[in-house]
Design a binder for these strands. Structure first.
Length: 513
RNA sequence: GCGGGAGUAGCUCAGUGGUAGAGCAUCAGUUUCCCAAACUGAAGGCCGCGGGUUCGAUACCCGUUUCCCGCUCCA
């Protein structure tokens, strides 16, 4: 856990993850696909274990939280209601000198405002000049400067509207050029082309490509929960406050997908939407903030590597938001967001669908649209955090080094390696016996190749918490040694006790406490 | 998308205008050992891809692609 051993280079983690079968670049034999990754034989186990731990922590341990698995495809109206169709579509332009990016539509709107300001100034000037006798309406209709500017604005507005309607990026660029808009930072007109950024992936359902059949890959899993609110409410016998949890893939066509598996266009979210009585949302927001922070600590993250980041600028639907950030090799970055989403989503869906998404509160004797507190964690980010946190290159007393992934045992892909000290004298057979028993409880790994030391180190690099070694004495006393990954200490135990001992050591219960 | 850096064996990296090397890892064997032991042998590369210069390019030039870093973006 010491900071000295903490590797700050992401590259080391990427290499290790690839070399030991955790994460591979997607379709690598074809040169890979940008920012897409596949999980290898140990990565998939780690991922599954994290996901399962989250699920148990949220669903199994909370009587008032139930699970859900909604489809990735959803009715297109879902994304109109949620605001994604409008908010996830921006025409963007870069200034090559200042390297700043702007929304093209905002730049044009600002330029139009400037021209309108000129008109206002002209009017003010005239008003001062003529005093009481000033006829504003007449002035606006006759003053040549005003008329010229008014026409200019009208022309631009017409072009601008049409360009937006036609999604004509070239025309937007041309308007920016014609208006001689300069970058506020660099002061230059050295612009790139305007590009439309569609943050949602779309595809067609049905064999005939028709506009009405364009559907989106969900950009967040939350909406699958909101549209099922009534279904769950009617069938789960839950009463407010209660939550719906879901793990699933979401897709965002990010402008920049970077930093290994931290930001990818295809990613997996673990979300829980908690429905509460209006007015109580801040209490629940605080409660979930603490609960989720404790969960992250249970993954073995040091307190110093976790941080709460409060949003100052809130999304339009939220009335409170906080991120849980982890100290990645590239700095503190968000792993999980906790948002008080008010009744925005349900209200939007209620309006769009015409279905009443309300809850009748017997205590208050009234119906209302519940408020929502959301906890939304990125599974891939959590994997990266666990990998970063676990990856250590340790200097041993004898001067050698060892690379170890000190995962919490309940997250480790392989729980135990079964190793005969030598490959003869009946030791492999005895080890196989143990393997055949333990494999029903845990993912185990049998290895008889190379020296025992090398095999220990190999398991260290995979993060296997326990190595069970069969030696010559085992044949007579029925005892084996259990070697601890972190302390490298060995303990001699009875074979009959193995199931219990290993079972206790890798029990997730210990993490929850 | 802009700028910078880098792509040579599974990993870490050498290398030279004359068609490639080390260490580790992998596989087979010998050794039978409690913390990356030794030995023998094997396999593994269109030197990221395409084009240009050249008698000849892994090397020099251009383009492209992928990754990393910074900016940007981030419901």
């Amino acid at each position: 856990m010491s900071k000295e051993n903490k590797v700050t280079d992401l590259q080391d983690i990427i290499s290790h993850a690839k070399e030991y079968g955790f994460v591979f670049p997607s379709s690598e034999i074809y040169d890979g696909l940008g920012a897409v990754y596949d999980y290898g034989q140990y990565g998939v186990e780690l991922k599954k274990n994290i996901q399962e731990y989250w699920w148990k922590s949220m669903v199994q341990l909370h009587e008032n939280i139930v699970g859900l698995d909604a489809a990735i495809f959803m009715h297109p109206k879902t994304w109109k209601a949620s605001g994604h169709v409008d908010a996830f579509n921006d025409p963007l332009i870069d200034n090559k000198d200042s390297k700043k990016r702007y929304r093209a539509d905002v730049l044009i709107e600002e330029a139009m405002t400037k021209i309108e300001d000129k008109i206002t100034k002209e009017v003010d000037k005239a008003e001062k000049k003529f005093g009481e006798t000033f006829d504003k309406a007449m002035f606006l209709q006759t003053n040549p400067n005003v008329l010229r500017n008014k026409e200019k604005v009208a022309t631009i507005e017409a072009r601008f509207k049409k360009a937006l309607e036609d999604s004509n990026m070239d025309e937007l660029k041309q308007i920016i050029v014609d208006l001689e808009i300069v970058c506020p930072i660099s002061g230059t007109r050295n612009w790139t082309e305007v590009r439309q950024f569609n943050l949602m992936f779309s595809t067609q359902v049905g064999a005939i490509a028709d506009e009405s059949e364009t559907i989106y890959l969900r950009p967040e899993t939350a909406q699958g929960i909101f549209v099922n609110f009534l279904n769950v409410l009617n069938t789960s016998r839950q009463r407010i406050p209660f939550g719906i949890a879901q793990v699933g893939k979401a897709f965002r066509n990010e402008v920049v997908a970077r930093q290994f598996i931290f930001r990818t266009r295809e990613f997996e979210q673990m979300e829980m939407q908690f429905f509460v009585r209006p007015g109580t949302e801040m209490e629940w927001f605080e409660k979930w903030k603490e609960t989720r922070m404790a969960w992250h600590k249970s993954l073995g993250f040091a307190e110093a590597d976790l941080k709460l980041h409060k949003h100052i600028k809130l999304a339009f639907y939220a009335n409170a938001a906080v991120d849980i950030e982890y100290n990645f090799p590239f700095g503190f970055k968000e792993i999980e967001g906790i948002h008080s989403r008010t009744n925005h989503d349900l209200t939007q869906h209620q309006n769009m669908s015409g279905k009443k998404l309300q809850y009748f509160d017997h205590e208050l004797n009234e119906s209302y649209v519940p408020y929502v507190v959301e906890t939304s964690i990125g599974l891939n980010r959590t994997i990266l955090a666990v990998l970063s946190n676990s990856y250590k290159v340790e200097k041993l007393e004898d001067g050698t080094e060892r690379t170890v992934l000190n995962f919490p045992p309940f997250l480790a892909p392989i729980k135990a390696a079964i190793l005969p000290l030598v490959k003869k004298d009946g030791l492999p057979e005895k080890a196989r016996e143990i393997m055949n028993e333990l494999k029903f409880d845990h993912l185990c790994f049998y290895d008889e190749k190379d020296s025992i030391g090398k095999r220990y180190r190999r398991q260290d690099a995979l993060g296997t918490p326990f190595c069970i070694t069969v030696d010559h004495d085992t044949l007579t006393d029925n005892k084996v040694t259990i070697r601890d990954r972190d302390t490298m200490k060995q303990e001699r135990v009875d074979i009959s006790e193995l199931r219990r001992i290993v079972g206790e050591k890798v029990d997730w219960r210990k993490a929850v406490k």
